[in-house]
Design a protein around this nucleic acid. Structure first.
Lengths: 136, 136
DNA sequence: CGTATATATGTCGTATCACGATATATGTGG
DNA sequence: CCACATATATCGTGATACGACATATATACG
């Protein structure tokens, strides 16, 4: 483990890349918060909206997979989203165990604004991120 | 706010990009945890090591800036790192208010292993990330 | 000089939330 | 129709980032 050869430039590249990712994450947190969402809630909405292969909504287990969180955490996340009126739960007619989670009009609107802001931000930092990535 | 024009492809690109970032973050969490670190602790160590312009260590406020967290959170983060024997606090001879945080031998070793794993991972997902970024 | 102000670090109580362990419901295969 | 897998739900716990506040040091400027 201790015979890895890591140069100072490697460390610098890693630090710079993580800093850039953290900057984007912090931007996203701010935007989400300004819209009354937590980052996780935002990502859940985006996963539902951005999965065209699932037009009837995402199952809770799919949300967990997409966000790489535990299933029970996804349940709780959906609890909070539903309580805030941002998603609806509908049981899957094809499989009674599954709950399909869909957006509401309100979350569609919120997500639209958030996505516009994120697109702007990403277009602004795109070249920086590309340059940082190419250092690896 | 509600007249933003966002296409389905935009949503899909955003969701895919965030999923990739989350994947990397989850990978990093796992690796850090396997080394006995939290993600924040890892990033703090990396910031200290990867800032060549500060060879005597980073001040707590600089760590806060780099990680984009509040100053008091940085203090607490350094508390936990110091307690784990992963950093040392030294007051800055040039400014008695500042505390310079430096790595220990142990954290140098841990960070070396973590960095090697992250370099491998990043080289593996680099082309994927580049492709996702170019969609914006 | 000395006082006001700014900056850096530190302390403490609080709230959030992801998790592990566990429970219940539904589907599936022999 | 029974064993097992899968999906969702519940609950207690721990970790930690934060806001509000406190203290120490530096700097500006009369």
């Amino acid at each position: 483990m201790s015979d890895d050869l890591i140069s100072d430039q490697d460390y610098e590249a890693l630090a710079a890349f993580r800093h850039a990712m953290r900057r984007f994450a912090a931007f996203s947190e701010m935007e989400a918060k300004a819209s009354g969402l937590t980052p996780r809630q935002h990502q859940a909405l985006l996963a539902i909206k951005g999965t065209p292969s699932a037009p009837n909504g995402l199952a809770i287990s799919q949300i967990a997979e997409h966000l790489l969180i535990q299933h029970n955490s996804a349940v709780e996340l959906v609890d909070r989203l539903a309580e805030a009126g941002l998603v609806r739960r509908q049981s899957d007619p094809a499989d009674g165990r599954r709950i399909l989670v869909t957006l509401t009009e309100r979350s569609e609107t919120v997500l639209r604004g958030l996505s516009a802001a994120h697109l702007r931000e990403l277009r602004g930092i795109r070249s920086t991120l590309l340059a940082l990535l190419r250092r690896f």
